[in-house]
Simulated assay, not measured.
Amino acid sequence: MPIGRGGHRWLAPRQVPRSVAPRGDSTGTRIHWPRTLAAKRQAPLSIEHVRHRRVDARAGVLHCVALDCSGSMAHGEPLALAKGVLLRVLERAYQSRADAALVCFAAGRAEVRLPPSRARLWNEDWIRPIGGGGGTPLALGVARADQLLARSARRRPAQQRWLWLLTDGRSSELPPRPAWADHVVIVDVERHAMPLGRCRRIAEAWGAAYRDAGDAGDVADLVS
């Protein structure tokens, strides 16, 4: 298992064969997650379930961030860490001329704070007022982000879609993997005295990338 900066371990996405474009060609294939998940149904994911779709690198990238703003995040360090990661993802998205979106979830609600649009340079004055409180509607937040990605896919089907889940994982819910995300990154901001380690379990269940929020460089380097 690779070691990230600061000695933290991280999980690579589950290894599923995927063809890539040859050098000099802007097209290739990606996993078509809605069809793949429909094919596997309740069975464990295996190679025969995998479906692919053609993509064009010129179609661009959308980075959708789902930010946990629940009460467990608001006490102490987790929400501040998550905001730092959010700022870095938006900065990198701006530098790569990608699109960005933000969904915040807490207290039984999931709200689109930033609809998909070309990423701009954001500063802490915009991010700092984002507050937290209440329970952790993890399934609702993930579903809201997936709805946003689905609408984006209908408008720009060739665009690559990333979902970034910034959370401490302190929820008993384990929602299904977002079907419309080509890539998923779980950023773990849990800093409680008795950690539960649920972010890593979510990443393993989804076949997603896992990052600890302390590895800021590793997180930002994923943004394409």
Score class of each variant (00 low, 15 high):
residue 115 P to T: 13
residue 115 P to M: 12
residue 115 P to Y: 10
residue 115 P to R: 13
residue 115 P to C: 11
residue 116 P to A: 05
residue 116 P to V: 02
residue 116 P to K: 06
residue 116 P to T: 04
residue 116 P to F: 04
residue 117 S to C: 02
residue 117 S to W: 00
residue 117 S to N: 06
residue 118 R to E: 15
residue 118 R to A: 15
residue 118 R to C: 09
residue 119 A to P: 12
residue 119 A to Y: 10
residue 119 A to N: 09
residue 119 A to K: 10
residue 120 R to T: 06
residue 120 R to C: 01
residue 120 R to W: 02
residue 120 R to Q: 12
residue 120 R to I: 06
residue 121 L to Y: 02
residue 121 L to C: 02
residue 121 L to F: 01
residue 121 L to H: 01
residue 121 L to E: 00
residue 122 W to I: 09
residue 122 W to K: 01
residue 122 W to S: 08
residue 122 W to M: 06
residue 122 W to A: 11
residue 122 W to T: 06
residue 123 N to W: 14
residue 123 N to C: 13
residue 123 N to S: 14
residue 124 E to I: 07
residue 124 E to P: 00
residue 124 E to V: 10
residue 124 E to K: 03
residue 124 E to F: 04
residue 124 E to S: 03
residue 124 E to D: 04
residue 124 E to H: 06
residue 125 D to I: 11
residue 125 D to G: 09
residue 125 D to M: 13
residue 126 W to I: 03
residue 126 W to Y: 02
residue 126 W to E: 00
residue 126 W to M: 06
residue 126 W to N: 00
residue 126 W to G: 03
residue 127 I to D: 08
residue 127 I to G: 08
residue 127 I to C: 13
residue 127 I to E: 05
residue 127 I to R: 08
residue 127 I to T: 12
residue 128 R to V: 07
residue 128 R to P: 00
residue 128 R to Y: 03
residue 128 R to G: 03
residue 128 R to H: 10
residue 128 R to N: 09
residue 129 P to N: 04
residue 129 P to I: 06
residue 129 P to W: 08
residue 129 P to S: 07
residue 130 I to T: 06
residue 130 I to Y: 08
residue 130 I to W: 04
residue 131 G to S: 11
residue 131 G to V: 02
residue 131 G to R: 00
residue 131 G to F: 04
residue 132 G to K: 03
residue 132 G to N: 09
residue 132 G to D: 07
residue 132 G to M: 10
residue 132 G to T: 07
residue 133 G to D: 07
residue 133 G to V: 07
residue 134 G to Q: 12
residue 134 G to P: 06
residue 134 G to Y: 09
residue 134 G to F: 11
residue 134 G to V: 12
residue 135 G to A: 07
residue 135 G to I: 01
residue 136 T to L: 05
residue 136 T to V: 03
residue 136 T to Y: 02
residue 136 T to H: 01
residue 137 P to M: 01
residue 138 L to H: 01
residue 138 L to F: 01
residue 138 L to I: 01
residue 138 L to R: 00
residue 139 A to V: 05
residue 139 A to D: 12
residue 139 A to I: 07
residue 139 A to K: 10
residue 140 L to W: 04
residue 140 L to E: 14
residue 140 L to Q: 14
residue 140 L to N: 08
residue 140 L to H: 11
residue 140 L to V: 09
residue 141 G to N: 02
residue 141 G to Q: 03
residue 141 G to Y: 03
residue 141 G to A: 03
residue 141 G to L: 00
residue 142 V to K: 09
residue 142 V to T: 13
residue 142 V to L: 15
residue 142 V to N: 03
residue 142 V to A: 14
residue 142 V to S: 05
residue 143 A to S: 07
residue 144 R to W: 03
residue 144 R to P: 04
residue 144 R to Y: 05
residue 144 R to V: 10
residue 144 R to I: 02
residue 144 R to C: 12
residue 144 R to E: 15
residue 144 R to G: 06
residue 144 R to T: 15
residue 144 R to A: 14
residue 144 R to L: 11
residue 144 R to S: 13
residue 144 R to Q: 14
residue 145 A to Q: 10
residue 145 A to V: 08
residue 145 A to I: 11
residue 145 A to L: 12
residue 145 A to E: 09
residue 146 D to E: 01
residue 146 D to L: 06
residue 147 Q to M: 10
residue 147 Q to H: 11
residue 147 Q to E: 15
residue 147 Q to I: 05
residue 147 Q to N: 09
residue 148 L to H: 15
residue 148 L to S: 15
